[in-house]
Each structure stands twice: as C-alpha cells, then as structure tokens.
C-alpha cells in the first residue's frame, strides 16, 4: 500500500535528520564542556583519581551528583559549597574527612553510610573531585545549598 511506504520513508528520513542534528549539537556541547563550562586546568590527576574512587565505591547508588543517581542520600554536586568550601577550603576539607572517617554513625533509625577505610591521600583526592565538580557551570542548579 502506498501510504505504508510513505510512512516508512518519513520514519527513516526524519529519524536520520534528527539524529544528525543531535550529533551536531553533541559535538558543540562537547567543546563547550571542555572549554567553557568546566575547569580544564583544574582537572588534575587527584580529581581524576577522586572520580575513580567515587565509581569504585558505587556512591551514585545512594547519592545524586548534579541531580542524577539514587535518591537515598544527599546531593554531592554542591557538597563542597554546602560545607563552606568557597570561603574556607581547608575547613571544608577537614569537615569532609572527619565525616568520612566517622561513618557509619550506627544511630538507630538513621540512614547509614558504610566505612570505606580510605587513606588520607584518597580522602584528599575525593575532596578535590567534589571541589572540581562544584565549579561546573550548571545553569544555576541546584536552587540552593541544600542541593
């Protein structure tokens, strides 16, 4: 039937058209991320290692980061800001490290975070990762420090 082949051709042609536009915009977005919205120079070995630790411990299956992940534990894309890292980076780092070392709290009825037994170096790298993530230009998200 004529209309079926017309529908098929519109499907193939239209889909190819939209996929090409999408790829084009992705390429632009790729350059935008690398050069504009993220801190290129700040992406150090420590930050990269921090991200690796974030993945190895499967943190994203409790926490969100930039709003993506599980909704069981607080947002961490802005944890650096929430800990006051903008004004007092050393204080934020210490607060973060103390927090990590004191888990799990064991408090009855409160969600528990495991103890990961990170070394000082690993904790620093993780802190560097969160600090780097907090500098991503996210169009002003989240609306406030609560994340």
């Amino acid at each position: 039937m004529h209309t079926k082949s017309a529908a098929r051709n519109i499907f193939y042609g239209g889909s190819a058209f939209f996929i090409l536009i999408f790829f084009g915009l992705t390429i632009h977005s790729h350059y935008y991320i690398v050069n504009v919205s993220t801190d290129k120079k700040g992406l150090t070995q420590a930050v990269i290692h921090g991200k690796k630790l974030w993945e190895d411990k499967s943190c994203v299956n409790c926490h969100t980061i930039l709003g993506e992940g599980a909704y069981f534990a607080p947002e961490l894309g802005n944890v650096w800001v929430r800990y006051g890292g903008k004004d007092d980076p050393e204080g934020a780092r210490e607060t973060f490290k103390t927090w990590m070392k004191s888990q799990p709290t064991g408090v009855e009825g409160r969600r528990q975070m495991p103890q990961f037994n990170f070394t000082e170096k690993e904790l620093d790298d993780l802190a560097d990762f969160f600090k780097w993530v907090s500098t991503i230009d996210t169009n002003g998200w989240p609306p406030n420090d609560a994340g």
Partner: peptide
C-alpha cells in the same frame, strides 16, 4: 535504615 546496613548496604541492593 539500619537493616543490613553493614552486610549489604543500600547501594548494593539498588544495583
């Protein structure tokens, strides 16, 4: 939230 929190944390269950 304390259930299995040491043995099988939430992130593992969710995976």
């Amino acid at each position: 939230p304390n259930f299995l929190s040491e043995l099988m944390p939430f992130n593992t269950v969710r995976m």
